[in-house]
Design a protein around this nucleic acid. Structure first.
Lengths: 326, 326
DNA sequence: CAATAGAGGAAAGGATCGTTCCTAGATTGG
DNA sequence: CCAATCTAGGAACGATCCTTTCCTCTATTG
């Protein structure tokens, strides 16, 4: 028996597992008197975790939603679900949440029982098709780098440069930045004695991480992002097209989950400007609209459409040959 | 000051926020002597949360990964990230994890401070395009139903039947099932006095939920899933095509994140059988392959290709007119 | 070998805890 | 409107637990 702390955690766990509890039920579960439950509830409250209580025949205790977020007591399956969800979010399936997801993932990773690790990576390979060109980033690499940043540990890795040349690096990692589907590491290269920006999908880390270092003064955030932006070369989509669709604006908005500004052009037409890193992706998204459209002033996109059309046409021809004319 | 319980939680929080701590650092942070820190560490250990310790000049304490999952102490941003990630996973972006995600989401939802709610739903609308035909399920509806199942609360909602007729229902909710992108609720209809299966995307719940009910004996799981499968009408994809691609099997596998069996046909060709509920979706996915392909024995898919090709061709023609011939 | 860090025993005063009694107030349902 | 049910909280007491202050011992690193 480990006294009150353990009981408080169990109480918290019970209150998270079901919504309504009477002090009698809780007392039985915890093996104490109802008076002690009352004391424990008070303790939780003074810890900042609000417990709402209602007297009367349909009353009882329940955890409130105003106040601090109580410690989450997850079972194994739920922990796996959380980890998998965070990995998906980190990989860019929800815009704007990537960096925070990686931070939470690093925290979870650190306390995650080893037996759950393989279950998570098992799900990894079953990710549903996320339409994307370009390399995917390994979430394991991502969390490893995030942990190294947090703990100020030297990082050693093999780096495949754009030219294809591989080099071995040793850096003090500082910041992990996300720009659309790409991840960048801002670090101090200890051999070249300068700040460098690395693309995470080209990093192959060497385990284990090195010794601790004492962090040096960081340039201001503004400068860091500027440096990365310079490295990327463009702050915006590489391609941006202007498209007119023969459908009401509301219809197009409902079909495009990205919050794009869609301008209505009368009752039955609207215009919008989708962006993407690859004209091929744009062509596919336009196909998903299931409506006729016109492209204004974007020869790359028209080229992509032509390429796709020719490919489809070849497939149709070949398929008719294969199954015979009807 | 709230004694040891609060301090233990703070200790756990510190150990989760960074990896290595010396007892001296912890003692300063917690405002106690190092001897007490030592005692606290022992307490955590006997609670089942392993704390690894290393003596010596580079030593210190760190949370171990063997043993139980400790209570997660998240800050606001991390909690938002977790919730967003779970919602994405619940919506089917990771196959096989949907039901567990919803359970974890219901747990989180219940303790989530109100001030974080709107931040989460703000992210909701920024979900990246997940290519899918068919209705999306509202995560709020999903978690609400999951909570009602868990807490045995009567559920009242408006239901739009397949025919379009709306009806008001009052049910005892029992199970939430996921089949690909669809969610189904198995419940006891208190007015019709029988088990019914509802599609969640057609449910519009009425708040608040009703009073508690005493759960009745459930049919065995096997029967439940059988009932749902019967309701769905098909246990498998509605369309399944056979496709031959002019590319190595490894290439196709790397382009298709769905774990589909891809049979190599010599060096440069391979075959696979993608499934989908909509031939249009299949056509788009095949476009993503960026390789020539042939369709075997699937007239629907060929039709979808034709339709898409015609649409693209119209777009090309219209666009050339618009921007003039080059 | 020296410095650093964890491990843990012993003892003592003080704080805390859980219990057993109360009484009071709110809510629900017949 | 009453009875049942449930939370709220004060008082007192004995037992327990906790924190601190001293120690000594061991493992690791450079």
């Amino acid at each position: 028996m480990l006294g009150t702390s353990a009981r408080l955690l169990r109480l918290l766990s019970l209150l998270q597992a079901r919504r309504d509890w009477t002090s009698g039920e809780l007392a039985t579960r915890l093996g104490v008197t109802t008076r002690t439950v009352r004391n424990d509830v008070d303790r939780l409250r003074s810890l900042g975790y609000p417990v709402d209580a209602r007297p009367g025949v349909a009353g009882g205790y329940r955890l409130g939603t105003h106040g601090a977020l109580p410690p989450l007591l997850l079972d194994d399956e739920e922990a796996v679900a959380v980890a998998v969800g965070l990995r998906t979010a980190a990989n860019g399936s929800v815009a704007g949440i990537e960096e925070t997801s990686v931070r939470a993932l690093a925290k979870l990773q650190q306390v995650l029982p080893a037996r759950l690790r393989h279950r998570i990576s098992a799900f990894q390979s079953y990710t549903l098709p996320m339409p994307s060109y370009g390399p995917q980033v390994d979430p394991d690499v991502l969390t490893m780098i995030a942990s190294a940043c947090r703990d100020h540990e030297l990082l050693r890795f093999d780096y495949r440069a754009h030219s294809g040349a591989a080099s071995r690096r040793s850096v003090e990692p500082y910041r992990l930045l996300n720009d659309r589907r790409r991840w960048y590491l801002v670090a101090w290269d200890t051999e070249r004695n300068d700040w460098r920006t690395f693309r995470v999908d080209r990093i192959e880390p060497r385990t284990p991480t090195g010794p601790r270092f004492t962090p040096r003064a960081l340039p201001p955030d503004r400068e860091i992002t500027a440096r990365v932006a310079r490295g990327i070369g463009e702050a915006t989509w590489r391609y941006r097209a202007r498209v007119v669709v023969r459908a009401p604006a509301a219809y197009v908005r409902s079909r495009l989950p990205i919050p794009v500004e869609v301008r209505p052009l009368g009752e039955d037409r609207c215009a919008f400007e989708p962006g993407s890193d690859h004209p091929e992706m744009l062509a596919l998204y336009l196909g998903m609209l299931d409506a006729d459209f016109t492209i204004v002033d974007s020869p790359e996109l028209v080229d992509a459409l032509r390429k796709l059309t020719r490919r489809y046409q070849r497939a149709i021809d070949a398929s008719q040959q294969a199954s015979g004319p009807q």
